[in-house]
Design a protein around this nucleic acid. Structure first.
Length: 414
DNA sequence: TCTGGGGTCCTAGGACCC
DNA sequence: TCTGGGGTCCTAGGACCC
């Protein structure tokens, strides 16, 4: 029998912010008052990123606007995010977990899987170990977690989500009926708002309803996703706890601007800036890309995208930007823009042998990009930038939550 | 009233090939 | 008047995760 743990930091950003502030000598604990970590409203990033449990009691939800959160609780304390601190806390937790098993999967900044299978002889039975881990994180790092214990990653994750905070829960196969099936169907991993709504129309309200529904009926409506969630509702999932990060399939950067962009000149400058950011990340990973995409959200929140596959994989800022510019001019019809993004797909590793065949980027451009990348690495992102950004009011490197640093994200893949 | 950013995967529809 | 059927590749859009 496999024993998988899922460790989930309770209200991660908010807990970490609270711990840091207490360490800095602040008297009040954000976790004990209605509070949220939230984006900057002036820059139109005003949403709730994390909430305290007292804030949750007012019905405040992650992702909702700070405006709406304040309507629910006028005395709400709002603090800005500090991603560097959260990264540090996350890394410390990962190090701690590695004491208990060599096989720890960094699933997201605040969620990790541990494969505890066959570790019993070293650290005792699984449930005791889960409690020890929870206690140790609280004692050494100052924040609380939920630990879910189960026979696979899906059930471990569902277990950690049961009752919060500071709890250990198990979800073995013989507990599914009692602990998981009565839950509303949207609590199931991979059943989001859209699917839950469609299921509701079909009379499927709980995870149990979904688990016992006819699979061919689900397939007809939801295709492969229907089969997936039916399996999940029955606790069936068998992916490995992965030590190594998943190979990168694509990367992108986007930005919501503090004002609606109306001129072509300004839009192109912002796209160049976004291209710089994403191309720098591409080169840092020693990659090249064949698919170049842009996406645009206009002032009415209507979003659309445009992409092109090029024959030879490219890497230089200039080569990527020339495609980005083409794409933009092909789709933009002068409607004011709220947000834009540049993304790269169809990624290849760029080893030395191959480079001689890539004629797309000439040698001069490669050298220039490399030089600029190195200067930025040594002296910071602002040390050198294109002169067109001077006095333009536009940042030379748009996008990204942390300047000049990779920030680990999460996908819907276990 | 205000509504982030960065990922992965899937599907539909059209182009194109034999 | 009636007009194949696969297969692959590409693009746009939408679902999900945190």
């Amino acid at each position: 029998m496999n024993n998988i743990f899922h460790v989930d930091v309770n209200s991660a950003y908010l807990s970490w912010e609270a711990v840091y502030r207490l360490q800095m000598g602040e008297k009040k604990d954000l976790r004990e008052i209605p509070s949220v970590v939230g984006g900057n409203e002036e820059n139109r990033h005003g949403i709730v990123l994390a909430k305290s449990i007292p804030a949750k009691k007012y019905g405040i939800q992650t992702g909702e606007t700070l405006f709406s959160a304040r309507l629910k609780c006028p005395e709400l304390e709002v603090v800005p995010p500090r991603y560097h601190i959260y990264m540090k806390c996350s890394q410390e937790m990962e190090e701690l977990l590695k004491r208990y098993s060599p096989n720890v999967q960094f699933y997201s900044i605040d969620e990790m899987f541990i494969d505890y299978t066959n570790m019993e002889k070293k650290f005792g039975n699984a449930i005791d170990a889960a409690y020890t881990i929870k206690r140790q994180i609280k004692k050494e790092l100052g924040f609380t977690v939920n630990v879910g214990v189960g026979p696979n990653k899906l059930l471990a994750k569902m277990a950690s989500g049961l009752k919060k905070p500071d709890r250990v829960h198990t979800l073995f196969f013989d507990e599914i009926f009692e602990k998981m099936w009565p839950l509303p169907v949207n609590k199931l991993f991979m059943v989001g708002g859209r699917t839950a709504k469609k299921l509701d129309v079909l009379g499927i309200k709980t995870i149990g309803d979904l688990a016992t529904e006819d699979i061919s009926k689900l397939y007809k409506i939801f295709k492969s996703h229907g089969v997936l969630i039916h399996n999940y509702a029955n606790g069936l999932e068998n992916s490995k706890v992965r030590n190594e990060p998943m190979p990168i399939k694509g990367l992108g950067n986007s930005s919501t601007f503090s004002f609606d962009v109306c001129s072509e000149k300004e839009a192109l400058m912002l796209l160049l800036s976004l291209t710089e950011t994403v191309a720098t990340r591409l080169r840092r990973g020693n990659f090249r890309a064949k698919v170049i995409k842009i996406h645009i959200k206009d002032k009415d929140f209507f979003t659309f995208s445009h992409q092109r596959k090029v024959v030879n994989p490219i890497q230089s800022t200039d080569a990527i930007y020339s495609v980005v510019k083409e794409l933009f001019l092909e789709v933009w019809h002068k409607k004011p823009i709220r947000k834009m993004g540049v993304a790269l797909g169809d990624i290849y590793t760029s080893d030395y042998e191959q480079i001689t065949f890539w004629e797309e980027d000439d040698k001069t451009k490669r050298m220039l990009d490399k030089t600029v990348d190195n200067i930025r690495k040594r002296y910071g992102a602002k040390a050198v930038f294109r002169s067109c950004f001077l006095h333009s009011g536009i940042k030379p490197l748009e996008g990204g939550v942390i300047d000049n640093e990779d920030y680990p994200m999460v996908s819907s893949v276990l």
